[in-house]
Amino acid sequence: MSNYTDHKKYEDYEFEDFLSDEFFVQWVKSPSENTLHFWEKWLISNPQKREMVTEAASFVRSIQYKENFEFTDEAYIQVFENILKADLEVPSHNTIPSKMDTWYSFFSVRRAAAILLIGFSCWALYETQNFSDSEKASIEWITKVNEAGKKTVLHLNDGTVIHLNSNSKISYPKTFTESSRVISMEGEAFFDVKKEGRPFIVEVKDAKVEVLGTSFNVNSAVEGKLEVALVSGKVKVNDKLGNQVMLAPMEMIVLEDNGKIHKQDFDVRSVTGWKDKYLVFSDDDFDTVVQKIETWYGVDIHTAGKFNAQWAYTGQYYDESLENVLEGIAQTSKIQYKIKGKEVEITH
């Protein structure tokens, strides 16, 4: 290990070689399909290096700025507005207005500002540390349960708004402690967290999502995994194995029960539309469509006939009746349906 080299093979790598490898750092800090695929395979075929790799990964993650300088929401808006204002001060050229000039029109500038208002830089921490159970025990907890077909909006006394989806459950203390705001949940919920000094912690499955103020969707209703989708801000994810992943705005992290983690993009309407009464199907197979309708309307669906694997349905419905949704699907997807109270029969 006396001089660095690009040509060394990974199997001959020493501690420092991993640490100075761009591809390795990428995998540790922002795993992509590409890096995950490579390094997972590599670790399986080089088990003797596993410990060294884990240690090197810990080193990479442990490096951080000593001081954090936060660009506040006020600064975010102020600087943004000043940048746009500077556009309007540009002396107009004596040329014929081009297409580009219309981009700078007052209205498009205003629209840009409105879209940005939701993009405050926030900080969310997702971690696995434990909170003292004794603190929890002395607090009076309120529990809300939504059966299938029911959705509720909860306004907590700290200003946080929670949309609780059907088939979901949430528990929160009557009053939060002075040090933190802890709630626990099952199923799916959308959080619009009021920013303040105390962290906001969501306990879900065996994981914890900690935020300081941001809006995000947590979905543990899908068997075998937990999905956290961030609408705005930044998220740092630490799982129980010490893995750490940074999430950019509009990214979703999926934690599988077997410990696997991956990031993916998400469509805001598909993931969070439920809270605004949008029932969204996006290339869903038949089972998913059935399950979504059952949960949404609180009905039991019986099926008859053959549905091949190619069957898929895409569509969005706003605050629509069960009959209209089934009619919409029937029109394009050759199904027949019968509604008898809380029972639905679908044939193909």
């Binding site: 309407r269 898929a312 919409g328 394009t332």
Partner: peptide
């Protein structure tokens, strides 16, 4: 299958 072709559906 895209229900957009159906004028009656509430696709957005």
């Amino acid at each position: 299958r895209n229900p957009k072709e159906q004028p009656n559906s509430t696709f957005i």
